[in-house]
């Protein structure tokens, strides 16, 4: 029993160190994060000007998810892209599953930050048609988890190629559509006043999807990681 605790503790330590490293790297290259923030701001501001500040709830919803999708894809690729040179070094330090776990946590935090930024900007510029914030946030949370975990594996695949950035969007968009379809439909229903019972089936499917993708990532990542 003592041993199991010790092993789990060591694993946690490795994962936390890897997450810390990711934050440190990003903190040192501030232009990357600032670039994403600026990207989000510019897109929303352009939508604000283009729609002339009058926007229907259904379009608000579609726009929200579209901008979230594009800013996630733009942001997600960078992390694995910059790992390429360090791959061999990691072989000595951590197993593939540690690295994946760290990346998943890091991407999730990153995605949540993105959602907060996006939500704040949306409410400021394009108004807030959401009347049930709790339900909306629950669905948003599940959708954001889906986006983050699918993009993690895809980013690790795309980073193996020379033109990873283009490949990232080609590979990620078809794969993400099921998650996006469920999340966008739910979110539209919530904006039009659906209750928890109306969307519970879809929410459950979304949870199952996330679980499947996480499980698959842990099975497949070791193969896509090692050269």
């Amino acid at each position: 029993m003592h041993l199991i605790f010790k092993v789990t503790f060591a694993t946690m330590e490795v994962i936390i160190t890897l997450i810390k490293k990711d934050f440190l790297v990003d903190f040192r290259q501030k232009y990357l994060l600032a670039g994403i923030a600026l990207y989000v701001f510019a897109t929303i501001y352009i939508s604000y000007l283009a729609f002339n500040s009058v926007i229907a709830p259904a379009i608000w919803n579609a726009l929200f998810w579209l901008i979230l999708l594009f800013s996630s894809v733009t942001g997600m690729f960078k992390s694995f892209g910059q790992e390429a040179n360090r791959t061999y070094y990691y072989y000595y330090l951590a197993s593939a599953n540690h690295i994946l776990a760290a990346k998943l946590v890091y991407y999730l935090l990153y995605e949540f930050l993105l959602v907060i930024l996006l939500g704040a900007l949306f409410i400021t510029f394009l108004g807030n048609p959401v009347e049930q914030p709790v339900l909306f946030l629950l669905n948003l949370l599940l959708g954001a988890i889906g986006l983050a975990v699918s993009f993690t594996l895809i980013a690790s695949i795309a980073s193996k190629s020379d033109n990873g950035n283009t490949l990232m969007s080609i590979l990620a968009f078809p794969v993400i559509i099921p998650v996006l379809l469920l999340a966008v439909t739910n979110s539209r229903k919530i904006i039009f006043g659906a209750s928890f019972q109306d969307i519970s089936g879809n929410l459950l499917t979304l949870v199952c999807f996330n679980v499947i993708i996480i499980a698959l990532s842990f099975i497949l990542f070791p193969y896509s990681w090692k050269n």
Binding site: L153, V175, F209, I212, L216, Y223
Partner: peptide, 18 residues
């Protein structure tokens, strides 16, 4: 071969629920 196999498995797992 390795990377496509990984994506192939991932795509098929998405295809079934889809």
């Amino acid at each position: 071969a390795r990377i496509t196999s990984v994506y192939n498995i991932f795509a098929f797992a998405i295809l079934i629920p889809l």
